[in-house]
């Protein structure tokens, strides 16, 4: 029997509307409200053992405490599966369903699922982390939403293969998965070309992504006093690649001490990067990480100092997510070390 805990808000919990949105989380044995329909849809394989009810305002104003408290409640019932909502177009309810699902998934390591209208702000916040069944924008869509949620929930609980978003009814999570098609790529390209020429409908296999932007920081006020750090994606490492950074799809970065190093030579440094002809960097790694010049500028007083450590990884085929994770980690170290600016070199 698959043990299920269900999460709903104060309205669906029958406590009250907006005036009761500040109630703290509580847990009740068995089903409450929409849990009835969910129970029917789940059938004999699963049982809703408990229902968490929380006020939408309370949750959103106290996300950390509320999540922690709910997590404790859920844990006590030892569930195999966690279902939240559906939240339809209710913004705060959607954010609560998404947050609670993610917390349960991350901490209890069990499958989670919720349902929302595509425009719910909770969708963009959580679609990458959890399965969200696409629902109508109001509770009138309950009758369609519940069976879809139950069906996918059971699949998740039984660790079955999950189909494509359209087949299963969930909102695409931005996860790329390999599949075999019936035609080879060249034939698909020619078919697409003919469709495009004729003005017929065609479906691209890879829609272009949107890129987010970060506003530039103010400039360095006094370069003569500034501590500058080097970062590179060109894979420059001490000879022998002590951290064994991969030549492609790097899963790590290296942090190396430049104390006493005035020039990178063929005997002391090399590149671990597998995406470009390494000959030039292996002969003189200053061509990628200009330590020699920075030391001169340091002596001449053009800059305050070159930071003691440099950070290096291999940009070749390395996922944006990994690169982002590396930088998030070492940027904090750079701040702690009082670095005022970074020169990042790429190959």
């Amino acid at each position: 029997m698959i043990r299920v805990v269900h999460y709903i808000n104060q309205f669906y919990g029958g406590i009250g509307g907006e005036e009761k949105a500040d109630v703290k989380p509580e847990i009740r044995e068995g089903v409450v409200g929409p849990g009835m329909a969910l129970k029917a849809a789940l059938g004999a394989e699963a049982e809703i053992v408990a229902t968490v009810i929380c006020g939408d305002s309370y949750f959103n104003e106290n996300i950390e405490e509320a999540s922690a408290a709910i997590l404790e409640m859920v844990k006590r019932y030892n569930p195999d599966l966690f279902i939240a909502g559906p939240a339809f177009n209710a913004g705060r309810y959607g954010v609560a369903c998404g947050s609670v699902c993610k917390a349960v998934k991350d901490n209890l390591n069990i499958p989670v699922i919720t349902g929302m209208f595509i425009g719910n702000p909770g969708v963009d916040m959580f679609k990458k982390d959890i399965y969200i069944i696409e629902t109508a924008n109001a509770a009138t869509g309950m009758r369609q939403a519940i069976p879809a949620i139950a069906k996918l929930a059971l699949k998740l609980a039984k660790n079955e293969d999950i189909g494509m978003p359209k087949e299963e009814g969930y909102i695409p999570r931005g996860v790329r998965k390999n599949i075999f098609k019936s035609e080879r790529g060249s034939k698909r390209a020619v078919d697409m070309l003919v469709a495009k020429l004729k003005g017929e409908k065609f479906e691209t296999e890879y829609p272009m992504p949107d890129f987010d932007r970060v506003a530039p920081n103010p400039p360095v006020a006094d370069m003569k006093k500034a501590k500058i750090a080097f970062v590179t994606s060109g894979g420059i490492v001490p000879k022998g690649n002590p951290d064994r950074i991969e030549s492609s799809s790097a899963s790590k970065y290296g942090k190396y001490d430049l104390t006493g190093v005035n020039d990178l030579t063929a005997e002391t440094y090399e590149t671990a990067h597998g995406g470009y002809d390494p000959t030039y960097a292996n002969i003189d790694a200053d061509r990628v990480l200009p330590v020699d010049v920075m030391r001169d500028l340091e002596k001449e007083g053009v800059i305050g100092e070159l930071h003691r450590y440099y950070y290096s990884t291999v940009g070749n085929g390395t996922s944006v997510a990994n690169a982002k994770k590396f930088a998030e980690t070492f940027a904090q170290e750079l701040i702690k070390d009082g670095v005022q600016a970074v020169i990042l070199t790429s190959t």
């Binding site: 790329r176 495009k196 296999e205 890879y206 829609p207 992504p209 799809s249 996922s319 990994n322």
Partner: peptide
């Protein structure tokens, strides 16, 4: 090259005009 989990961005560059793309799979 969408990462081992497929959640990362697939190409190093992008352009709006690239609206008809055939992909040969995620090499990661």
């Amino acid at each position: 090259y969408a990462g081992r989990d497929g959640a990362s961005q697939s190409l190093a560059d992008a352009d709006k005009s690239a609206d008809a793309v055939v992909t040969a799979g995620n090499a990661n």
